[in-house]
C-alpha cells in the first residue's frame, strides 16, 4: 500500500528527530574524546597542547579514581539490592486483598516524584540530622547516642536516600508484572498443595524474571549517574568517601578547571555505561519482536 510518495513523507517525518539526536550524540562525545587527549585547563586556556594518554594516566593514578569507581559500584549494587528485594516484597504485599489499596499505592509510589535535591535535603536535615533529625530523636528516646550519619556512614546514607527514591519504581513495575500472572495457574498450584514458598519459587519468580531484569538494567543506567544527592548532602566527602565517578568528573572539570582530565574520566564513564546499555538494549529489543 505504501507508495513512493508516502514513503518519502515518512522519511521526512522521522528526519528531524534522527538529525537532532545524531548531532546531540556525536558532537559533544567527539569533543570529549578530543579533549581527553589534550592538556587543556580553563585557567590557562591559551596553552593547549597534545597530551597523548597523559590524562588517562593521570586519572588512572589518582587514588580518588579507584575509590570513586568503587563507590559508584557500591551505590549501584547497594541500591539495587534494597530496591529489588524490597520491591518484590512490597509488590507481593500489595497484590493481596486489603482495605484502602488505592491510598496505600499512592503513598508508596510518592517518593519517586520527589526531585533529587528535595529528597536528599529532607533526609539530611529532617531524618538523619544528628541534632534535630527524627533518627536522633528516636536514639535519644531509647537512651542512645545519636549517630552522625553523613560523617560516619556517608556512602550508606546516600544509598538509603537513593534507594528510597527508587523503591517505588521497582515496586510499581514488579506489581504490574505480578498482576499479569494468570490467576488460574496460581489456583491450580494451590489446589495441588504447593505452599507459599514453593509457589513463589516455581511460579511467581520465573514470571517476574523479565521484569526484574528490566528494573535492574534501567535503574543501573540512572544509578551510575547519581549526582544531586551527593552534591547537597556530603559534597563527596569526608575526603573522597562518598565521591562517585560522576562527582569526581564534576570536581575535576568545574572545580579543578581541568578539561583534559575530566574528559578522560568522561570517556571512562561512557565505557562503563555502555557495558550496561548493551544488556539493556538486548532485553528491550527482544520485546520489539513480539
Amino acid at each position: 500500500m505504501a507508495t513512493q510518495n508516502t514513503r518519502a513523507l515518512a522519511r521526512l517525518m522521522v528526519a528531524p528527530s534522527v538529525g537532532l539526536l545524531l548531532i546531540w550524540m556525536i558532537v559533544p562525545l567527539a569533543m570529549t574524546l578530543w579533549f581527553s587527549f589534550q592538556n587543556y585547563n580553563l585557567l590557562n586556556p591559551a596553552n593547549v597542547s597534545f597530551a597523548g594518554l597523559f590524562n588517562y594516566q593521570y586519572f588512572y593514578t589518582d587514588p580518588a579514581f579507584f575509590q570513586s569507581i568503587w563507590n559508584t559500584l557500591v551505590i549501584v549494587v547497594g541500591v539495587l539490592l534494597i530496591t529489588v528485594i524490597g520491591g518484590i516484597a512490597i509488590a507481593l504485599l500489595l497484590d493481596q486483598p486489603m482495605l484502602g489499596q488505592g491510598i496505600v499505592r499512592i503513598m508508596i509510589i510518592s517518593p519517586f516524584f520527589v526531585m533529587p535535591p528535595v529528597a536528599a535535603l529532607v533526609w539530611k536535615n529532617m531524618i538523619m540530622h544528628p541534632g534535630y533529625g527524627v533518627f536522633a530523636d528516636m536514639s535519644r528516646a531509647l537512651g542512645l547516642q545519636p549517630i552522625d550519619w553523613f560523617a560516619q556512614y556517608p556512602l550508606f546514607s546516600i544509598i538509603i536516600i537513593v534507594a528510597w527514591q527508587w523503591l517505588p519504581f521497582a515496586t510499581l513495575i514488579l506489581l504490574t508484572a505480578l498482576q499479569s500472572l494468570d490467576g488460574e495457574q496460581k489456583e491450580a498450584a494451590e489446589m495441588d498443595g504447593a505452599n507459599f514458598v514453593n509457589r513463589f519459587i516455581y511460579l511467581t519468580l520465573p514470571h517476574l524474571a523479565r521484569s526484574i531484569t528490566v528494573v535492574i538494567l534501567i535503574q543501573t543506567i540512572f544509578l551510575l549517574g547519581v549526582y544531586a544527592e551527593i552534591l547537597v548532602t556530603t559534597n563527596g566527602g569526608p575526603g573522597y568517601a562518598s565521591t562517585n565517578l560522576p562527582f569526581l568528573i564534576y570536581r575535576t572539570a568545574l572545580l579543578g578547571y581541568d578539561v583534559g582530565g575530566a574528559s578522560a574520566g568522561g570517556i571512562i564513564a561512557v565505557i562503563l555505561a555502555n557495558i550496561v546499555a548493551f544488556f539493556l538494549m538486548r532485553a528491550v529489543g527482544k520485546n520489539l519482536d513480539r
Binding site: 528527530s17 534522527v18 539526536l21 546531540w24 550524540m25 558532537v27 559533544p28 562525545l29 569533543m31 570529549t32 579533549f35 543506567i221 551510575l224 549517574g225 549526582y227 565517578l245 560522576p246 568528573i249 564534576y250 572539570a253 568545574l254 578539561v259 575530566a262 574528559s263 574520566g265 568522561g266 570517556i267 564513564a269 561512557v270 562503563l272 555505561a273 555502555n274 550496561v276 546499555a277 539493556l280 538494549m281 528491550v284 529489543g285 520489539l288
Partner: peptide, 18 residues
C-alpha cells in the same frame, strides 16, 4: 528506535565539559 534508545544511555557527565 534502538539507536534512539541508546542515546539515552550516554552518561551526562561524559558530555559535561563540551
Amino acid at each position: 528506535l534502538m539507536w534512539m534508545l541508546s542515546t539515552k544511555m550516554m552518561p551526562a557527565v561524559a558530555v559535561l565539559v563540551p
